[in-house]
Structure formats: C-alpha cells, structure tokens
Amino acid sequence: MKNRYLTLLLLVLLFTLPSLFPDNESRYEQWSKSLLCPVCQGETIYDSPSEYADDMGAILLEQINKGLTDDQIYTFWVSRYGERIITNPINRNLEILFIPLTLVFGFVLLFVRKLYVKK
C-alpha cells in the first residue's frame, strides 16, 4: 500500500511542475510563429531565413513594442496580405477545429457501435 501513496505523491508533484516552472513564450515569438512568409512556400516568418521574413519580423517587433493589441496586429497583416497570412486561424474561424472534431467523433461512435455487443 505504501507504494501507492508514493505513486500518488509523485503524480501530485509532477502535475505541480507546470505552475512552478511555467513556459513563457514572448508575444513576438507567438506572432512570428503564426505569420506566414508569403514568398517562402509555406514557412512562417519564424522558420524562414529569407530577407522578406526578416523585414516582416522587424515590423512585427515594432508593433509589439508599441503595445498594439492582438486585434490591431491581426487587422494590419490581414488587410495587407489577406487571411492566408495567418497560419493559426483557429481563434478566428472555429469551424477549422469543429469540422475535424465532428468527423473524428462520428467515426469513433460508428466504429465502436459496430463492435459493441449489448449484454
């Protein structure tokens, strides 16, 4: 039985780690990871080594240092390049999460129903 308490203790310890040592991503990092570099075939400006991405990054950094809100930054980039510049459209268009989740859920339901025996 002692072992069980130890397991429990370890689990509690483990799950307090995220609040003790949190992962802080800077706003610049978050945004640069979600902005597409329009000339680089599907890379974000965070990943791309091109000069174009560099220039975009400089503008982005300036915006963040000025303290622009997420909405303002979003509007700025979308008005210039269209929606496809945002690689992380999940906060805006919920159907992007909703459609695959529904399909997966439907699939699981159907799959399990076919295999389940009523007792």
């Binding site: 597409l36 974000t44 929606e83 690689t87 992380n88 992007i96 999460l97 695959p100």
Partner: peptide, 12 residues
C-alpha cells in the same frame, strides 16, 4: 484563402 499551420496539428 486560409493557411492551416502548426497550431492546428499541435491542438488536434
């Protein structure tokens, strides 16, 4: 036009 990026796959 939209782009599906890393966060979609990270989340799902």
């Amino acid at each position: 036009q939209i782009t599906i990026g890393r966060s979609y796959y990270d989340i799902l």
